[in-house]
Simulated assay, not measured.
Amino acid sequence: MSLAGSRPRQACPTRGRPRSEAVERAIVEGVMKLLEDGVPLAELSIERVARTAGVGKATIYRRWSGKEELFVDVMRAAEPPDPELPGTSMRDDLVVLLETMRRRGLLNRSSMMLHNVYAQMKSSPKLWAAYEATVIAPRREAVHEVLRRGQRNGELCADADIELVNDIVVGPMVVRAFMRPEAELPEGLAERIVDTVLVGLRPVSSTAP
């Protein structure tokens, strides 16, 4: 389930009751507070979250099926939002997607809370699987769609392996942003990666001499 902003707003909320968006925001902020206070994910029970957010457990369960779904939404709220793609070209869209990854990497480095939570998530197979399915897989599919559109538009070799090209384009940013904390993440890195990779993936003109 996504955060409150993705659902229609109620035009006339019941007098005296908080709006649904406000309730969900309080719950998400409650989890964030506990994480910032150093509470491990394993100790974040729904009961503890409800107590911190000032709501009942039933209020949480009406919005999220369990801890994994709630934590995924909390992490999505803590990260930069997925970008709107310009749609002007495959190259421009890939640059935007990689730039967002660069910014996530910078945020992960600057936020000890996020860094610790990511590490804890990876040690929890069930939680990481939920994050993978809900967040990572859709982002990967977004890159795939950009590449497929590039093939249709003649910007990418028609016989290119989309899965492999995805790894070739995204891989350098993943390594620098999330696997090498000492590596620099300068502005312009997304453009450099995309332009370097695409040089060898552009269709070759078949025009005879």
Rank of each mutant, 00 (worst) to 15 (best):
M112C: 03
V197S: 08
H144F: 14
E43M: 07
V174N: 07
C157A: 13
E99V: 02
M173W: 05
G171T: 06
V146Q: 10
L147N: 09
L185M: 01
F71Q: 09
L34F: 14
Q10A: 12
A119T: 11
T196A: 12
A142R: 15
K122A: 15
S110V: 00
P13W: 06
E69R: 07
D167F: 04
R176H: 07
L85F: 00
I168T: 10
M101H: 02
A142M: 14
R152K: 12
A129V: 04
I46W: 08
M1F: 06
G105P: 14
S65L: 11
N166A: 08
D82M: 08
G87A: 13
L198H: 05
V95H: 12
T52C: 11
S65I: 10
M113H: 01
E163H: 06
L147I: 10
S89I: 08
I60T: 04
E99R: 13
G188R: 00
T14L: 10
D92K: 05
E79S: 10
R63K: 12
L94A: 13
V95T: 14
R202D: 12
L97Y: 03
S2H: 13
D161N: 11
T14Y: 03
S205D: 15
Q151R: 11
M101L: 13
A130I: 02
A160P: 05
A22S: 15
F178D: 00
I193C: 00
M179C: 13
R149F: 01
P18L: 10
E68L: 03
V96Q: 07
G66P: 02
K126R: 15
M113Y: 00
Q120D: 14
L35C: 05
R17L: 15
E184C: 01
I27R: 01
P125N: 05
E24Q: 15
E21R: 09
L198N: 10
E132W: 04
P8H: 10
P181D: 12
E141W: 06
R176P: 03
L70A: 06
Q10E: 15
K126F: 07
R62A: 10
D159R: 01
